[in-house]
Nucleic acid binder design. Structure first.
Lengths: 337, 337
DNA sequence: TTGAAAGCGCTAACAG
DNA sequence: CTGTTAGCGCTTTCAA
């Protein structure tokens, strides 16, 4: 049978209060003698306190909920790891949930996490979420939005951690321009998606900075996956579009596009240069290795948890919006000038 | 302030006992009238019970700990997802922990999970773990080993879910042999690793089945990563080894090897055929797409949790060993006969 | 068909 | 320096 605080107290000949105090380091007022005795007994009996009993009284579980679309999406393992690292460093534990971009699953998880009394939640919301977090409003667990931002204002949303998509796209396109490309095709993800939209703005801005007119024909909109990249590249060729560089909405698109181009005998980067977005781990494994805009995925998870914990422990103000800066990872898919 | 069972009881004009009963479906003996009234009030007030209070009395948290080396390792997202899916289906929640193949981190997590009173643990143990799970023995949380097996026998280890490495290697090597290869290089991971060792045995067995002598020179031992694959391929060429196929300890090795060969002008699969192991996400994205032995990663996670829950709910016997069958995914890296 | 009472393992005033 | 007491929100006999 598992030991309880009572057992330890009895063995040490003290009250549970005393044991509780030394256990929690609130032992300024306890004599070294009893302190040591209690510690010794706890160790000998391999005693571990029940955090559920503790939580019942303290109202803190030292547990954080992490809701993401799907851990199999190559974007999220890094983020999850960053979150877990920070959490574990601060003595928290993470419950992880895959909601598949599905609103009702998200709501369901929100409910479960609330029942489990997590201290707070980090969530990469479904792109479909435009409404409020109905079920959760009143319980007021603090929530930090990560990766995906939405334009809703609720008291329970205590912060956001996102990356600067506009800037990232700018950097990527500028990189191609500075290497001599002038006609840059943009194979975009869905433009209803905020991130996509911002990347498009960044793309336009970079062009503008170099006095290149935006050409609507060079914008192809589709999904954030390899198939779309493959298809879009085929369309571009079929339509006989005139371009020397391709900026892709994300790495998956870039990977599909590269495959498509190579299949048609077009060489990367000799004939066409390509830049991706995200820097998922595959990107360095394909051929040519992909030049891409790196999102600080690990850091996003890390910072989000840090922000949450700061709020939980009353160290920081709320409603912060942290915009992380992407950077470019130069590999082999852009022809050097 | 959050509602408690007392508040609901008061509003409904009944005792907490009654509320508790209808909440938990133990309501055979409650009149429909009060049942409905209570349910209505719970809904109206958006009441969610505190599972920590409940856990304190029931001794069940409906929470499972999942300890893996690193979610960023492409092997684990699938496994984790499988675990989470099964857990969530059964009304459990998963706390996830990255232990980095580090014994003391593992022990630390084991301790934390025990304090949090998880109902059981799924763990892909560190390859370094040969001793017992010291810290955990007596608390006797049920543990299921997944992916990595170890030869220790403890009462707390209630089951194992692994894949048949021997068989997998056999299938892979046979596939090459049946396509005409006769001299097959094996670029292995560390042979101290049990999985590696079993794959080597499978490799040998396949050769033997076809009356091909095992040639010690065709065995190269290193690490389970891309760099080693790259390096090993270079070594093989430098040493002027005579081979027409390469069986790799895992996909990462295969990816490195392919890159290395291609860099030296050797064509895959025209000049040399290659087979990997695992079927990680990247494998279908590289060029040529990798023919490989698929481990049922998702299923491993899924089955492990299923097994654990069966044990927790007293449905099944213990100490089971579930060996999942790998299969071959034929893509482009083996030359057709 | 319902409720009173005890207790899960711990923390937190407060008193001594 | 240490202990008494009450209580966190729930479940569970047992009695009514």
């Amino acid at each position: 049978m598992k030991m309880t605080i009572k057992d330890i107290a009895k063995l040490a000949g003290v009250s549970t209060t005393t044991v509780s105090k030394v256990m929690n380091g609130k032992d300024e007022s306890i004599s070294d003698a009893t302190k040591d005795r209690i510690k010794k007994i706890m160790k000998e009996n391999n005693y571990t306190p029940s955090v559920v009993a503790r939580s019942l009284v303290t109202k803190r579980t030292n547990t954080i909920g992490l809701i993401i679309p799907d851990i199999r999406n190559p974007f999220f393992p890094e983020l999850a790891r960053g979150a877990e690292d920070m959490a574990s460093k601060a003595g928290y534990t993470i419950i992880f949930c895959n909601a598949d971009n599905n609103l009702s699953k998200e709501d369901e998880y929100l409910k479960v996490l609330s029942e489990k009394m997590v201290d707070g939640i980090i969530i990469a919301v479904s792109s479909k979420r435009e409404d409020q977090f109905e079920k959760i409003t009143e319980t007021s667990m603090p929530i930090i939005l990560v990766d995906r931002d939405i334009d809703i204002d609720m008291k329970c949303i205590k912060g956001r951690v996102i990356t600067d998509n506009f800037k990232g796209a700018c950097i990527g396109v500028e990189h191609m321009i500075s290497n001599g490309m002038e006609k840059i095709l943009f194979i975009s993800g869905p433009l209803t998606n905020k991130a996509s939209f911002e990347r498009l703005e960044g793309y336009k801005s970079a062009l503008e900075n170099h006095n290149i007119d935006f050409d609507q024909d060079l914008l192809l909109e589709g999904e954030f996956n390899e198939n779309w990249g493959y298809e879009a590249a085929a369309i571009a060729i079929e339509k006989n579009l005139d371009f020397d560089g391709v900026f892709c909405g994300n790495d998956l698109i870039a990977i599909g596009a590269i495959k498509s181009f190579k299949g048609k005998g077009i060489r990367i980067p000799q004939d066409i240069s390509i830049v991706g977005f995200d820097d998922i781990y595959v990107s360095s494994m394909i051929e040519p290795e992909l030049t891409t805009i790196r999102q600080p995925k690990y850091e996003m998870g890390y910072r989000a948890v840090e922000m949450l914990i700061d709020i939980l422990e009353g160290k920081k103000a709320e409603q912060k919006r942290l915009v992380l800066q992407p950077d470019i990872v130069i590999r082999e898919s852009v022809k050097k000038k």
